[in-house]
Nucleic acid binder design. Structure first.
Lengths: 230, 230, 230, 230
DNA sequence: AATGAATGAGCGTTCATTCAT
DNA sequence: TATGAATGAACGCTCATTCAT
């Protein structure tokens, strides 16, 4: 299930009313080239000229489809993040019916995904961009909200003693653990070879948390914050 | 211990052979301005012009101290990352002697730190930069290696059934969990208000992991990876 | 008789051999849009894109009717200048039979016209264009030649002591006085409220000139130019 | 006194505090090149690249001195219009003491000036620009306000039966007559050879107006506007 | 030590134009 | 007829860098 570097990323590209088929194809080429530049060379190299060169077009034509660079960025992020969401939905559809197994599978699947070059390189760019670009921030936060909502449902199915709010907090914690792993054990990272052990730790630790957590555990800490308790 | 936004970040600025004190002060001004621009406006605005304006100098003078922008970036990252390391060392020096408490405190301290604007904004930039800049990558990985070495020592002190290697893996997992939290519950992030509960989860979950983990748990998973087991 | 800002300018659009009525309508729409852009936003905004937007068409279609922007400019100027000429002819047709009254009326009529937004904004653009565009220059000069010919006829009718050549010179002087007023007392100009007094001065001064001028007055000055006499 | 085409236009260039001598010279070169492009090729060719080529510099250096093109335009117009004002002041200083002669001389001088390529080409550009650029409009209107104030003083000296307001109206009329002549008898215009006769007409007609005008003449027309009277 | 000056390359964007559909 | 698509050139502007002062 690990995404190969050569695999073209799956993008859900917004349909355009009345556009020629040719134009839609061109848009996809541009977005794919843009994604490639962003992933392979980083946001510093993410220029219209570089993207145009990547897809063998002229700068003016990119501006024809995306009057402002901002438009291209937004559409690219929308497409790629929707692609990720679609991939997750599909994975869930094929997964087991057993709640624990579903949750475990989801964690494993995502940890596999972050080892792809695409994911390892793309998401840190998004995190950085989001801090100074409101629209990117909204897109990224919405994406994670959807992802964590999926996790929260699984958490609830495993442990129904938790409130919905608590499930979402646990889901965020699970999500944070996985995302954080990207920067240490993602594609070409020094700890990438240790990913099997890390995955083991993550699954064991997070599954135990989900299964044993009680509402009181959260409430207790809220009353006496860790840094005072410590 | 939470770092205030107004607190100037602590930087350990590299001494220059034969440099006048005056020059050192100027360098500090430049680096501080550079850090400020990077944190407040992101890498897009991280230009010599913008930095020069921030510290009331002319662009030419920045080039006098840092012949190439690359030099400035490296020295800045070195200084700020060393500053973070110093801060951690200091915190450990003042911490309890009890191993569990030391570890718990370290986790709590770091989770507090990621709520500062500085940390929330700076590190995603570093993660993104590191993916396409070898020198930045080395600096960042070295920084995390030191951080995780500190954690690994604490882990070993709490659970001496684990090998050094296993302790390092656990330390990386702890580190990943904390870093990952940055993008969801860092400064001005939507989940920032939930940080107390997240901290509770992190401490409870990670401490339990450290205390109960056995070498077999890691070996078992290595033989049968999660994605097959799932 | 003052041209209202809301009045659509009258254009005499050149018939195209073998053109369908539909095409003629489209051409008129384009020319009207072009004129509107030129008058409202100036020659800087006078681009095919802007004009196309103004008449709800696509740029490509403008190029279909006017293969080169130059063609559009020429046809536009021809149409609008012919429209002005037609308007003047019509005004003369309705005017009194008394020579003096005809001349006075013509001056007043033109001074009224330069207060329209159309005239105030259009003609300075033409004067500027004509200085660096031979075709525009020819169109504009021809237009003024026709206008001054009309004035010259009136001048002769009032004062038959002057030669035709002298009448044309006087007509040019009258025309220059009126055109020059455009930039000071035209639409939205600071002196526009003073237009009644200016009109009074113009009529009194110019009519007196026409009535009293003798050929010797011109010859005398030719022999001893003002700048030496002064 | 006629300004030769080869004569460099006189510009009153704003002093810059703390600038190197070199920089001031460069600014003058830029402004002179800019003026040359505007006069010789019109506002369509008035681009930073064209100007840079004209003075043998690179575009970036123009931007160094004038961060925005707007700044260059404003400074250029200020310098050249102030230059014209200075020239007029100087001319007045050397003129006769006799009021009539002073006025006549001023008219003749200005009519001579509009035959220069610079004036013939520059001013129509300004008139056109002013209609869609507020700052240009202000500069141009201020320039003419100063010019007409000078004329108004002469008018008053010749005919003290007029109020100040009336003198200003007459001055505007004189100014309009002269400016309007630019487009017909300016440099390279078809009627340029007739300039002696036109100058004769202008002086005879305008001087007679100034000498014989009575306040009643203006008041009468104000009560019964020409277009109704006609 | 610091600045003013200048460069060359590149940025996002807009332009008139061409052409297949 | 009219549009979508694409181009190549140019636009104003910003960039890191160099260098004389």
């Amino acid at each position: 299930m690990e995404q190969d570097q050569d695999d073209l990323p799956v993008m859900r590209i917004r349909a355009r009313p009345g556009a020629y088929a040719c134009g839609t194809e061109t848009i996809e080429q541009i977005l794919r080239a843009a994604l490639n530049v962003l992933v392979e060379e980083g946001s510093n190299a993410f220029t219209l000229r570089r993207i145009a060169a990547e897809c063998g077009m002229k700068v003016g034509n990119l501006s024809y489809y995306f009057p402002h660079k901002e438009n291209l960025v937004e559409e690219l992020l929308e497409a790629i993040l929707n692609g990720y969401s679609d991939m997750a939905d599909e994975e869930l559809r094929d997964a087991s019916d057993d709640p624990e197994e579903r949750l475990m599978c989801g964690i494993a699947f995502t940890l596999d995904d972050i080892r792809s070059k695409l994911t390892t390189n793309l998401f840190p760019e998004l995190w950085a961009l989001a801090n100074h670009n409101e629209k990117v921030d909204r897109l990224v936060q919405d994406f994670y909200a959807r992802a964590q909502e999926r996790i929260a449902l699984s958490v609830r199915a495993v442990n129904d003693t938790l409130t919905e709010e608590e499930c979402r907090t646990v889901a965020l914690f699970i999500s944070a653990t996985i995302e954080g792993t990207t920067i240490f054990a993602g594609h070409a990272k020094p700890w990438e070879p240790k990913m099997p052990e890390i995955k083991a730790l993550a699954i064991q630790s997070l599954m135990h948390l989900v299964k044993t957590l009680r509402s009181d555990d959260l409430r207790a800490f809220r009353r006496s914050p860790a840094r005072l308790a410590a």
